[in-house]
Simulated scan of single mutants.
Amino acid sequence: MTIPDINKIYPRTNDKQIVYLKNIITNPSIQVGDYTIYNDFYNDPLGFQKNNVLYHYPINEDKLIIGKFCSIACGTKFLMNCANHTMHSLSTYTFPLFNEEWGHKMNVRDSWDNRRDIVIGNDVWIGYEAVIMSGVTIGDGAIIGTRAVVTKDVPPYAIVGGSPARVLKKRFSDDIIDKLLKIKWWNWPVEKITRNLEYIQSGNIFQLEKIE
């Protein structure tokens, strides 16, 4: 039985477009689960933090949290809190950011509306050039369509698309979704996943239920 190397950067020999994302992240405010992959055929995927996680400044202390076994397509963008100029003020201009220029001592963090972290579940597939806005939570098993702009939370195992993204359909029946969320195969030891890949890949939920 072959066990994948969790510590390598490139999961495929001679393929420098796909990386195990967790192993290239250095920013502690970005958390990525095991075996999540990012593919980039335009830029070096090693530049993910700079090219794909935007407006992510330490002052807001916001996090990007991505689960295990996610597939993130080329050009996906995560827009963090500093992309959100405040709408609670009478002006969207970021006056507090330029305190020195205006001779004031306003709280710099009042330049933006803080919409919390971006949280991506497990086994999520994010399509080409999708945009995920700050404060969004995407449930386990969801699929985000090509160039979708996700402004609201996405339920587990939903397929969403469009701008703004909306739910197009569910991947499975409610009964199967409930079973998958209970099984949580992505949390199994890797040896157990390897032994049961046939059932996961073929969609044999009934066999997965029997595994202890």
Rank of each mutant, 00 (worst) to 15 (best):
Ile120Asp: 04
Pro189Asp: 15
Asp123Phe: 07
Met87Ser: 11
Met87Thr: 08
Gly203Asn: 11
Ile3Tyr: 02
Lys16Pro: 01
Val124Leu: 12
Thr92Tyr: 11
Ile72Met: 13
Glu61Thr: 09
Ile72Trp: 08
Gly141Pro: 06
Tyr35Lys: 01
Thr13Leu: 15
Lys50Asn: 14
Thr94Ala: 14
Phe78Lys: 13
Ser134Pro: 02
Pro189Tyr: 02
Thr13Ile: 09
Thr76Leu: 12
Gly33Lys: 01
Gln31Val: 15
Pro164Thr: 08
Gly121Lys: 04
Asp175Thr: 02
Glu212Gln: 13
Gln49Ile: 01
Ile118Glu: 11
Ser202Gly: 05
Pro11Gly: 09
Arg109Cys: 02
Gly139Lys: 07
Phe172His: 00
Leu79Ile: 07
Asp110Tyr: 06
Lys152Asp: 04
Lys210Leu: 10
His85Tyr: 03
Ile138Gln: 08
Asn52Glu: 13
Leu64Ile: 07
Asp34Gly: 01
Gly75Lys: 14
Asn7Ile: 06
Met106Asp: 10
Trp186Ile: 04
His88Ile: 00
Val124Pro: 10
Trp188Pro: 05
Phe78Gly: 12
Phe41Arg: 14
Gln49Trp: 00
Tyr55Asp: 14
Ile6His: 04
Ile18Met: 04
Ser134Ala: 13
Gly145Tyr: 08
Leu208Ala: 01
Tyr10Ser: 02
Gly47Met: 03
Asn52Phe: 03
Thr2Ile: 12
Glu100Val: 00
Lys184Glu: 03
Gly162Trp: 10
Ile118Met: 11
Ser71His: 06
Asn99Lys: 10
Glu212Tyr: 01
Ile3Val: 06
Arg116Met: 10
Leu54Ala: 04
Leu197Tyr: 07
Pro4Glu: 01
Ala158Met: 02
Asn27Leu: 01
Val119Met: 05
Met87Pro: 00
Val53His: 07
Cys74Ala: 08
Glu101Gln: 09
Ser111His: 07
Ile24Phe: 00
Asp44Thr: 05
Pro4Gln: 02
Arg12Leu: 11
Leu46Cys: 02
Asp174Gln: 13
Ile37Gln: 13
Asp153His: 14
Val190Arg: 09
Asp113Gly: 10
Lys22Asn: 08
Leu168His: 09
Ser29Arg: 14
Asn196Trp: 10
Val32Ile: 12
Ile24Asp: 02
Lys169Asn: 00
Arg147Glu: 11
Thr76Ala: 08
Met106Ala: 14
Glu191Asn: 12
Thr151Gly: 01
Ile132Met: 15
Ser202Asn: 07
Trp102Ser: 05
Val149Arg: 14
Tyr38Leu: 03
Val150His: 08
Gly121Ala: 09
Gly75Met: 07
Val124Ser: 08
Val53Ala: 07
Ser173Glu: 03
Thr76Cys: 07
Leu64Arg: 05
Asn7Asp: 13
Val124His: 13
Thr146Ile: 13
Leu54Glu: 03
Ile143Val: 08
Thr86Gln: 09
Glu100Pro: 00
Met80Thr: 14
Tyr55Gln: 00
Asn187Pro: 02
Leu180Gly: 03
Lys152Cys: 02
Pro58His: 11
Asp140His: 13
Lys50Phe: 11
Ala165Leu: 12
Ala142Leu: 01
Leu90Gln: 00
Glu198Leu: 11
His88Lys: 11
Lys179Thr: 01
Leu97Ile: 00
Gly135Gln: 10
Arg109Thr: 13
Asp62His: 10
Gly203Pro: 12
Ser71Glu: 06
Val19Trp: 00
Ile25Lys: 15
Gly33Thr: 02
His56Asp: 07
Lys68Thr: 06
Trp188Arg: 10
Phe41Val: 09
Lys152Trp: 05
